[in-house]
Simulated assay, not measured.
Amino acid sequence: MNDLRTRYMGLQLRNPLVASAGPLSQTLDGIKSLAGGGVGAIVMYSLFEEQIRHEAARETEMMDRSAESFAEALSYFPTEPSNESGLVHSYLQLIEKAAPVIDVPLIASLNGSAKGEWSGMARRMVDAGASGIELNVYYLPEDLQVSGREVEQRYVDIVADVKQKVSVPVAVKLSPFFSSFGEMARRLDEAGADALVLFNRFLQPDIDLDQLQVISGFDLSNPDEAKLPRSWISALYRRVSASLAASTGVETTQDVVKYLLAGADVVMTTAALVRNGSSYAGQLVDGVTSWLNRRQLTLNQARGMLAVPAGADADEYARSGYVSGLERAKKTYAK
């Protein structure tokens, strides 16, 4: 039996398959089902910066109103917003209930776009029992005056801010849309990110021609979307200290294995588990074991086997692959 134990951002996992942030982790039963299904860790659904700020503002407003009407009762209010009837309270309560009853790390997820007081929620998540924090930095600058460097600095500031607030490992989930993604990965690594999760998926609205309106939506990923994150994981393998997590385009055992060969420490999926159920995780893990056994490889031997070679110039390596791909296309289609 192949040993699939894996270290991810300092956490010991029983295997490299991780349930990424998604709808299956919104309830205690859902989290228990994922753990029982065989994943190595669970990333909870995201708590959004806007939700935290909105509920904090609402609580503050209630405190102010009560202070005006009943000044003598002010001392009975907490010094910090409690959100006891809102999403924040429910999220923290879910961590408190779930973390002690599952046998895998539970990683809380924060989705934000700017450094601010909301990031202090990370400490409360850890106090509730989270083993780590995943930061999903979702920022789409629409101000045409904002420079690329300002956008990059915002990511670095958020990571550094949260790292100062918690003692557990912190991962950052990124988009690929940087002018120099490799340098951005290095900066986040130097800022203290314990893991880089490649990649998050921006919502891409469509247009309804009958209603003449913009519609938003979110589709589950498919294996074709794995090519870009796999390429970057291959390029970053052993070139950054942070763990590398693959996210997007995982449906089969083959998809998991390809990511591992590229150099991923862990492979995350939501789409496959939504489509096939939590127990499908066990099939994916068993499939990885079978593949390794057939090849007579250990997990450590397979991981990074097809990454960009350590001594290779990454740019030249990518260019050579590009030229080779074009040559194959000519032979295949130019007939």
Results as ranks from 00 to 15, higher is better:
Thr252Asn: 03
Arg53His: 06
Pro16Ser: 08
Thr289Gly: 07
Glu61Gly: 01
Leu297Cys: 12
Arg58Glu: 15
Gly10Arg: 10
His89Glu: 09
Ala264Asp: 09
Gly277Ala: 11
Trp118Cys: 11
Leu292Glu: 01
Arg58Ala: 15
Met125Ile: 11
Ala57Thr: 09
Met268Thr: 04
Val323Asp: 10
Leu135Ser: 00
Asn15Pro: 08
Gln301Ile: 00
Leu212Gly: 07
Glu49Val: 10
Asp103His: 14
Leu306Gly: 02
Arg149Glu: 15
Tyr280Glu: 11
Phe202Ile: 08
Asn293Trp: 01
Asn293Leu: 03
Ser241Asn: 14
Leu47Asp: 06
Thr252Tyr: 06
Arg303Phe: 05
Ala160Met: 10
Met125Cys: 15
Ala160Phe: 08
Asp224Leu: 10
Thr27His: 03
Ile107Ala: 01
Ala185Met: 05
Ser231Val: 00
Met9Leu: 15
Arg7Trp: 00
Val170Phe: 15
Val18Lys: 08
Asn2Pro: 13
Glu59Trp: 11
Pro229Asn: 14
Ser82Val: 14
Leu261Glu: 15
Val285Tyr: 04
Glu316Met: 09
Met184Asp: 05
Ile52Pro: 05
Met121Ile: 15
Val104Glu: 05
Gly325Ile: 12
Lys227Val: 15
Tyr139Cys: 05
Ile102Asn: 01
Leu228Tyr: 14
Leu198Gly: 09
Lys331Met: 07
Phe48Gln: 11
Tyr155Cys: 06
Ser66Phe: 03
Asp206Asn: 13
Gly10Leu: 13
Gln164Phe: 12
Val166Trp: 12
Gly217Tyr: 14
Ser90Pro: 05
Ala57Phe: 12
Leu47Pro: 04
Val308Thr: 09
Lys163Thr: 09
Pro105Asp: 07
Ser278Trp: 02
Asn83Gln: 03
Leu326Gly: 09
Gly192Glu: 10
Ser69Gly: 09
Gly311Asp: 15
Leu13Trp: 14
Phe77Ile: 02
Asn300Tyr: 04
Ala35Lys: 00
Gly217Glu: 13
Val214Met: 13
Gln283Ser: 10
Tyr139Asp: 06
Asn2Val: 12
Thr60Pro: 06
Lys32Leu: 10
Lys97Val: 05
Gln153Cys: 02
Ala108Gly: 07
His89Leu: 01
Ala114Trp: 03
Asp315Glu: 08
Asp208Ile: 03
Pro23Leu: 01
Lys330Gln: 05
Asp265Leu: 04
Ala128Cys: 09
Leu188Phe: 11
Gly182Leu: 15
His54Gly: 00
Met63His: 10
Ala191Pro: 13
Arg303Leu: 05
Leu34Cys: 05
Ser131Thr: 01
Asn136Arg: 00
Val267Ser: 05
Gln93Asp: 07
Tyr317Ile: 02
Ala245Val: 07
Gln204Pro: 00
Arg303Gly: 04
Thr60Gly: 02
Gly132Val: 03
Ala67Cys: 05
Val146Cys: 02
Arg319Lys: 10
Tyr139Arg: 08
Gly182Gln: 08
